[in-house]
Amino acid sequence: MNDVSWTDILSAITAVFALLIAWTANKAAWSANRAAERANATADAVARVERDRWHHEMIPQFDVTITRLGPGSNQASLMLTFEGPAALERLDEVELEIRDDGYTHGVGHVTEDYQRELANTIWGPYRFKPGIDGATGIGRTSPAVPVELGGWIKRALEESFPPSWTDRTYWHERYGNDSPVRLWVRCRRDGYQPWTLTYNVRVVDPQD
């Protein structure tokens, strides 16, 4: 013990204190980082909730009607009017698509011709009239167009066609006057997440 000087002892004590200070500083830094991470996570969560709330409040509002061209006609006119919210002002793209009836069709049939015809059948009362307003070949979709608040989109419809294995009389009974046209309405506006809306629209006769 006589070989140990006070200088060595003080140096050792100083080293220990230095280690303690470094450990304390590292712990404080780690705690600060953890707190910052929690604060960032909380801020992100709050921002996400706010974005979702704002996105919900800005859901486009449409009035959608489908009217036959005349009693007994196999054609109809779809009118979609953009009614709000006022703060949205405009939509860069509005795309329309006719949905199927929601049932599974063609179970157990695997031939390519059958599957092709199955995919090309619209399982509902109407389709977009092919070749009019850019409607797709089978009349399922109408291409996206811009629309301003108070503006409208008008599209021509015609009765859908049954697949070759289905009797037309049965088809008309299944998708008769009371069967609604089921629609997807997909909306996009720069700076917003897209909206996808659904509508079930009854077809009505023209008013006198």
Results as ranks from 00 to 15, higher is better:
10 L>F: 13
61 Q>F: 11
189 R>P: 00
154 K>L: 10
133 D>F: 07
178 D>M: 06
119 A>T: 11
169 T>L: 03
196 T>W: 09
168 R>A: 13
93 E>H: 10
172 H>K: 14
148 E>Q: 09
38 R>N: 09
66 I>V: 09
39 A>H: 03
155 R>E: 10
121 T>D: 04
67 T>C: 02
129 K>H: 08
88 L>S: 03
175 Y>R: 00
25 A>K: 02
46 V>F: 10
204 V>Q: 08
42 T>R: 12
153 I>L: 05
53 R>F: 11
173 E>D: 11
122 I>D: 01
130 P>C: 08
40 N>H: 11
51 R>C: 08
21 I>M: 06
164 S>K: 07
158 E>C: 10
128 F>P: 02
35 A>T: 07
87 A>E: 14
156 A>Y: 10
147 V>G: 00
199 Y>G: 05
78 L>D: 00
157 L>S: 02
118 L>E: 12
188 R>V: 03
162 P>V: 03
26 N>M: 05
156 A>Q: 12
108 G>C: 07
97 E>S: 15
46 V>A: 15
146 P>Y: 00
156 A>R: 13
82 F>G: 01
54 W>M: 12
56 H>S: 12
129 K>A: 10
2 N>R: 13
203 V>D: 00
188 R>L: 02
171 W>N: 03
77 S>C: 07
1 M>F: 12
7 T>I: 13
122 I>M: 08
82 F>I: 00
42 T>E: 13
180 P>R: 05
160 S>A: 15
136 T>S: 15
3 D>Y: 13
134 G>S: 04
16 V>S: 04
71 P>T: 01
99 R>V: 08
20 L>A: 07
91 L>R: 00
86 A>R: 14
119 A>K: 14
153 I>P: 01
142 S>K: 11
30 W>G: 05
94 V>H: 02
128 F>N: 01
127 R>S: 06
11 S>C: 14
89 E>F: 04
205 D>M: 02
70 G>A: 03
130 P>G: 04
94 V>E: 01
91 L>F: 01
128 F>R: 04
82 F>L: 01
198 T>N: 11
76 A>G: 02
108 G>R: 13
121 T>G: 06
4 V>I: 15
65 T>F: 01
148 E>W: 03
102 G>K: 04
116 R>L: 13
206 P>V: 01
3 D>T: 14
157 L>N: 03
163 P>F: 10
11 S>P: 08
118 L>P: 05
199 Y>K: 12
12 A>I: 07
56 H>A: 14
182 R>V: 06
105 H>R: 11
101 D>A: 08
177 N>C: 06
79 M>H: 10
63 D>A: 13
162 P>C: 04
96 L>V: 03
63 D>V: 13
8 D>E: 15
38 R>F: 04
205 D>R: 02
45 A>S: 14
54 W>F: 11
45 A>G: 07
123 W>G: 06
161 F>L: 15
101 D>L: 05
25 A>C: 05
171 W>F: 13
43 A>P: 06
113 D>T: 15
18 A>R: 07
38 R>W: 06
13 I>F: 09
179 S>M: 12
178 D>V: 06
139 G>E: 09
163 P>K: 10
114 Y>K: 09
94 V>T: 03
91 L>S: 00
4 V>S: 09
146 P>H: 01
95 E>D: 06
23 W>A: 07
191 G>W: 00
14 T>W: 09
96 L>F: 05
107 V>K: 11
155 R>A: 08
45 A>M: 13
11 S>I: 12
